[in-house]
Simulated assay, not measured.
Amino acid sequence: MVDFAVQAELLGYDSIWANDTLLGPRIEPLAMLAALSSATERVTLGTAALLPAFRRPVMAAQALASIDHLSAGRLVVTVGAGFPGRSEIEYAVSEVPGERRFGRLDDTVALWRALWSGQRAFHGTVLHFDDLPESTPSYRPGGPPIWLGGASPSALERTGRLYDGWLPYPPDPADYRTGLAAVRSAAATAGRSEDAVDPALFVTVLISEEPEGLERRLDSYCQTTYGLPYETVRTVQAIVAGPAEHVAATLGRYAKAGAEHLVCRIAAPSLDTQLDQLELIAKVIRPALQIPSRA
């Protein structure tokens, strides 16, 4: 995995992202990013998305501040509250109630920022601490940027009001445009500037010049990743697959809708296939995108 990330940096990618779940074996994302902080030099290191409820919040603040230091300020933290119908067991084994999960998430982020700035007490709607120990300050004043993953009306309002970036995965570029407008409206209502929130997109990508068997490959990937068929997942997540020209054109529609950073998850089962796709995206898709920066 470290070699994969190093190769991505060599190919010109701007960022590398680690996801988070307790449902199945994987390298824990903060451990992964800590390893990448010394193996890479330039790329942003991000979570997509971290699930803070499954970690003690004060310890998580220290871990994130540590990665921010180790990477010399290259960390971006996207957070989420999990998925209904899927994350209930994660809350149960973490001994955290699922109720008020959005309030808990926002409180956790506010607590992190308080700890990074040296505050010694915190009182939110869910979390309360009267006597916080001195914590590791972040590398950057105010801490690493914190993005929110989600596109519900509540998530859009909270993104504009509280967060530094937005990383949704809507299956239609038109929905992305509408959501981004709502985020910017919420930011303005909160007295923030329109560009206070970085607009990004989380998208699953598979380049294939052979249409036969493509849906079967996507279905296998979705079943392995979510335990759900492709036909179900495609209705709630951005999945772009097919010939390179089609993939580039579709991603370009998201860029025109306002997405400035494309976080591409490769829908391939093996590391060799993922490396092949990584190179195709860098050498074929990225040059075709009509956006000034980031993939």
Rank of each mutant, 00 (worst) to 15 (best):
V240A: 05
V236P: 02
P287I: 08
V233S: 05
R217E: 07
V197G: 01
A255F: 04
R253M: 12
P287S: 11
Q277Y: 06
E210H: 13
E260F: 02
Y230S: 06
P229Q: 06
A244P: 06
A257K: 05
R216L: 15
C264R: 08
V233W: 03
E210A: 15
T225I: 08
A200S: 14
S208N: 12
P269F: 00
E279V: 07
A249E: 13
A255H: 03
E215M: 07
C264E: 05
V236T: 12
L214N: 09
S208V: 12
R253G: 04
A259S: 09
P199W: 07
T273A: 07
A268L: 02
D198G: 08
E209D: 15
A288K: 14
R217L: 02
D198V: 14
Y226F: 15
F202R: 01
K283D: 15
E245P: 02
E245K: 10
S220R: 11
K256P: 01
R217D: 03
G227F: 10
P211K: 06
A249M: 11
V240N: 05
Q277S: 07
A257C: 08
L275K: 05
P287K: 11
V263W: 04
H261M: 04
L289P: 09
P211E: 10
L275G: 03
E279M: 05
R265L: 13
C264G: 08
A259D: 05
